[in-house]
Every structure is written in structure tokens, then in C-alpha cells.
């Protein structure tokens, strides 16, 4: 696993403390979402969980997803929830019927699921470390790193050329060769392009490049789905 490759990365205390505080707030918020007796309060606790998730995304250097999370979830979905609460006239002062009276089955299911998931995760990933620089490596940086490591000039090459060049290197061991082959595949442009074709210089650019090339068809399908869902919602909720 990748644990060995990252074992020498020093621990970043500030990141871990930040993670701990945000995670604690998220867990408390999530428990309040499912236990509070007031559905408006539940929506407001949900804001805390969603904001915490956005903060975790920033910690993992996925700033575009974090911003989308704030805009779409906190900005739109929570407001939609509050409208739903308002239109169904749930009592603002507290509603005792929010939860089933016998919830032993739910507790058992939740605890069992958590136990099973935790066991599997710890068993599978153990102490695997995230790469020292957790942001998605910019392709430009990755290219210069690769060139410095291997001495291969990458300009004008495609994926197959790069992999062949790495395979031909004689002064590295197998482990290093495997690492450099995956690095070569990572920096190689998608399709038949050549290294240096696209200047990707930020995480947002990398995401948009991916959406509008590799994932263009799913992206279009999602937009059609959103339109269909909104029209469907209007048709369902419309008064006769």
C-alpha cells in the first residue's frame, strides 16, 4: 500500500488539530440533526455539518468542491429544507412526533454498520498516510518533478513514449521504476496529446479540464437530470 511510500512524511500538527476540531463539531452536529425534537433546529445543525464538510474539503485541498458545497448545500438545499418545514407547518415550538417511539432497531443498525465499516477500514487502510502535499499535484509541477527525478525530457511525448523511456532507465531499482511509471502515466495528457499541450496551473483548472473532457457526457446528463427533476418537482407540487 501507499503507507510505505509516505512513511517518512513529517506529521503536520496544525492540520491534525484542525481536523480534530472540525470532525468533533461535525459528529456533534450530525447527532443533533437526528435527535433534536425541533425540525428547524435540525436544519440549522445540518448547516454545521455541511460547513464542517466544506472545511474538511479545504483541508484536503479540494477548494472548488468546498465552494460548491457552501453554495449548493448551505445556500440552496438548506433553504429548500426550511421552505419545506414552513410549507408543511411543522410546529416551530417543538414536535415530539419527529422520532419513532421504538428506535432500538435503528440504534442497533447504526452501531452495527459503524462497527463493520470501522473494522473494514482499519483492516484495509491501517496507517496509510496521505501524500505530504495533499493538494492534487499540479500537472506542471509534476512534470518538472518527473524530469528532475528521471532526467527524461518530456516535451512532445505521449504516454507510451514516457513509459518506454522509464522502462529503459538502467540506474533505478524496480520499486523506483514502478513509481516513475505511475508518475509518467499521471503527467501524460489524456488521449493522444503531448506533454505540455495543456497548461494546467491550478486545482480548479484541473477539475474543469477533467469535467469538460473526460466527463463531458456525464456532465451533460446531469444537467438534463437537473432540468427533469425541477420540472418534475413543479408538476408534483402544483395545485390542481
Amino acid at each position: 500500500m501507499a503507507a510505505a511510500a509516505n512513511a517518512d512524511v513529517p506529521v503536520n500538527v496544525a492540520q491534525n488539530v484542525g481536523f480534530g476540531i472540525i470532525a468533533a463539531a461535525m459528529v456533534v452536529g450530525a447527532i443533533r440533526v437526528v435527535t433534536t425534537h425541533n425540525v428547524v433546529h435540525a436544519a440549522l445543525w445540518l448547516v454545521l455539518v455541511l460547513a464542517g464538510a466544506a472545511a474538511q474539503f479545504i483541508l484536503l485541498a479540494a477548494e472548488f468542491v468546498a465552494l460548491t458545497q457552501v453554495l449548493v448545500y448551505i445556500g440552496a438545499i438548506v433553504v429548500l429544507f426550511l421552505f419545506g418545514v414552513m410549507l408543511t407547518r411543522a410546529l416551530i415550538g417543538g414536535d415530539a412526533e419527529l422520532t419513532r417511539p421504538n428506535r432500538a432497531g435503528a440504534v442497533v443498525t447504526g452501531v452495527l454498520m459503524l462497527g463493520l465499516l470501522s473494522f473494514t477500514l482499519i483492516d484495509t487502510f491501517g496507517n496509510d498516510r496521505l501524500p505530504s502535499d495533499t493538494r492534487v499535484t499540479l500537472r506542471r509541477d509534476a512534470v518538472s518533478q518527473f524530469e528532475a527525478d528521471t532526467g527524461i525530457v518530456t516535451a512532445g511525448m505521449n504516454e507510451e513514449d514516457l513509459v518506454a523511456q522509464v522502462a529503459a532507465l538502467s540506474d533505478i531499482d524496480d520499486r523506483e521504476r514502478t513509481r516513475q511509471v505511475s508518475a509518467a502515466r499521471a503527467i501524460a495528457p489524456d488521449g493522444a496529446g503531448q506533454v505540455g499541450d495543456v497548461s494546467i496551473d491550478s486545482n480548479v483548472a484541473a477539475v474543469s479540464d477533467s469535467i469538460f473532457s473526460q466527463y463531458l457526457l456525464p456532465f451533460e446528463i446531469v444537467s438534463v437530470l437537473l432540468t427533469a427533476a425541477l420540472i418534475g418537482a413543479i408538476v408534483i407540487a402544483r395545485k390542481e
Binding site: V27, A30, V33, A42, F81, V85, M113, L117, S118
Partner: peptide, 21 residues
């Protein structure tokens, strides 16, 4: 952390009886 949130969500889906919740 995601597993904890997931389990809490599953608990909520089963235990809650208010549609919005």
C-alpha cells in the same frame, strides 16, 4: 469520520418519521 456520519445518517433514516427529517 465519513463512516460515523454515514452510520448516524442511517440511524436517522430509520428512526425519524417526519418526512423532512
Amino acid at each position: 469520520l465519513a463512516a460515523v456520519l454515514f452510520a448516524i445518517g442511517v440511524y436517522g433514516v430509520i428512526a425519524r418519521r417526519n418526512g423532512v427529517a
